[in-house]
């Protein structure tokens, strides 16, 4: 009995330690962060110099992408697809096929909930979208039940 109690105590102690380890911050110290950010500033200034020059030229000559010569486009590996960048600064999250969780649940019931869960990466947003999918599924079932009640009621009246 004493042996079992000791074992339970040890297991408890180890799991508590593991949980404590898991919640321990992995953030760097202010000194380290400050150094990294200073380095970023100087590196970025250098890396973006060609785009800075292009920006000045485009603004002064009022140009669009088609006005640029092929050599400039190739030399800078300049791309004209802007969708990803514009969505990124909009802070748009990646939903499965861009469809909100509610509609996945509403249309596909439990399959929709499962798809939202599997297609999204583990994040706080996934939990939110799965919740919406569950609500969507319940609403969908409710609509379905009401539809059938009305359908059979219409026969009863006739």
């Amino acid at each position: 009995m004493k042996y079992i109690l000791s074992l339970i105590f040890m297991v408890g102690l180890i799991s508590t330690t593991l949980i404590a380890e898991n919640t321990k911050s992995v953030a760097d110290s202010p000194d380290q962060i400050s150094q990294i950010l200073k380095m970023d500033k100087s590196l970025i200034k250098e890396e973006f110099s060609s785009l800075d020059a292009l920006e000045d030229r485009i603004k002064s000559e009022n140009m669009t992408y088609v006005d640029l010569d092929a050599e400039t486009v190739r030399g800078l590996s300049l791309k004209a697809d802007v969708s990803g960048s514009l969505l990124a600064i909009a802070g748009a999250d990646d939903l499965p096929l861009g469809i909100p969780g509610f509609w996945w649940g509403f249309c596909l019931s439990w399959v929709g909930i499962l798809l939202v869960y599997l297609l999204m990466e583990e994040s706080a947003d996934r939990k939110e979208q799965v919740k919406k999918a569950v609500i969507g599924a319940l609403v969908g079932i409710g609509v379905w039940i009401v539809f059938w009640i009305l359908f059979w009621a219409s026969f009863a009246v006739v």
């Binding site: 909009a90 748009a92 469809i99």
Partner: peptide
């Protein structure tokens, strides 16, 4: 016209 994700709280403009 394409489907897109919602503008979330992480948007620079919201921030």
């Amino acid at each position: 016209k394409t489907t897109a994700p919602y503008i979330t709280e992480h948007s620079i403009f919201k921030m």
